[in-house]
């Protein structure tokens, strides 16, 4: 049985173009890019530096307006929404993980997560604490909930950052180079967590990375170079199920 959510793209970029600069310094980073991303799938977007993959992630996630093209996310034309509506959309549906952990130095692992729930959803302190502790438990960080970033390893910090992104239970999860600052063991743990978010929670996960070792952990790999998508590979089971459904 194939669910509709796997067949219908949850996030779709259509003829996206984006340039930076003006006149002679104008550089085009995305050339007429179209992409479909599905719920329950973890997709790796690979490419050399400057290929435009982070720009594509920013455009798809509602952080950077494209020069032309459309982003359809959960049935919404993302860039037709007002700034406030797009902010609310991100609040309700999007999670982000960045290369730098960007955690507040003063706050403990638990407080980093609580802050998102309290400020984002207006949850009570007790509710935020409960959810933060649940998430940290899931991330294997239950015993480190009281520690600040300076007391955590790089892998632990990135797991806290993942927890911060997932505690809202987002439908769309974007990760930009989430493993590049980690050793492979810690990187594997991070990828497994993202994979679990896709497979167990049904989220669409888009990972931008250089590291080829990640390929075997994802459902789908998209290669990008010079602002264009030039090759899309699907892991066998996923490819099979999608073809069957079609």
């Amino acid at each position: 049985m194939i669910s509709d959510s796997l067949v219908m793209p949850i996030l779709q970029g259509i003829h996206l173009s984006r340039s930076f600069g003006q006149g002679e310094t104008k550089t085009t980073v995305l050339y007429d890019v179209s992409i479909e991303l599905f719920a329950g799938q973890i997709t790796l977007l690979m490419g050399p530096s400057g290929s435009g993959k982070s720009t594509l992630l920013a455009v798809l996630s509602g952080l950077l307006r494209p020069d032309s093209g459309t982003v359809m996310a959960l049935g919404h034309d993302l860039w037709a929404l007002s700034d406030l509506e797009r902010e609310r959309f991100r609040l309700r549906h999007c999670g982000f993980i960045f290369q730098g952990y960007n955690l507040f130095n003063a706050l403990t692992a638990r407080q980093q997560l609580e802050m998102v729930v309290r400020w984002g959803e207006g949850a009570s302190a007790r509710e935020a604490r409960r959810r933060a502790e649940e998430m940290l438990d899931l991330l294997g960080l239950a015993k480190k909930a009281h520690l600040r970033p300076s007391e955590l390893s790089g892998g632990e910090k990135q797991r806290v950052a993942i927890g911060r992104a997932l505690i809202k239970e987002p439908n769309l999860c974007f990760a930009d180079e989430p493993t590049s600052a980690l050793d492979w063991k810690a990187g594997q743990q991070v990828i497994e967590l993202l994979r679990s978010a896709a497979h167990d929670r049904g989220a669409m996960v888009l990972v931008v990375a250089h590291d080829a070792r990640i390929i075997e952990h994802v459902d789908r790999v998209i290669h990008m170079e010079d602002g264009r998508l030039w090759q899309q590979e699907e892991s066998e089971p996923v490819l099979h199920t999608i073809k069957q459904a079609r």
């Binding site: 730098g100 998102v116 400020w119």
Partner: peptide, 14 residues
């Protein structure tokens, strides 16, 4: 703390 605040903004925190 701009980068930390930027993450919160990306997550849609008003």
């Amino acid at each position: 703390s701009l980068r930390e605040y930027a993450v919160l903004r990306a997550l849609g925190i008003p």
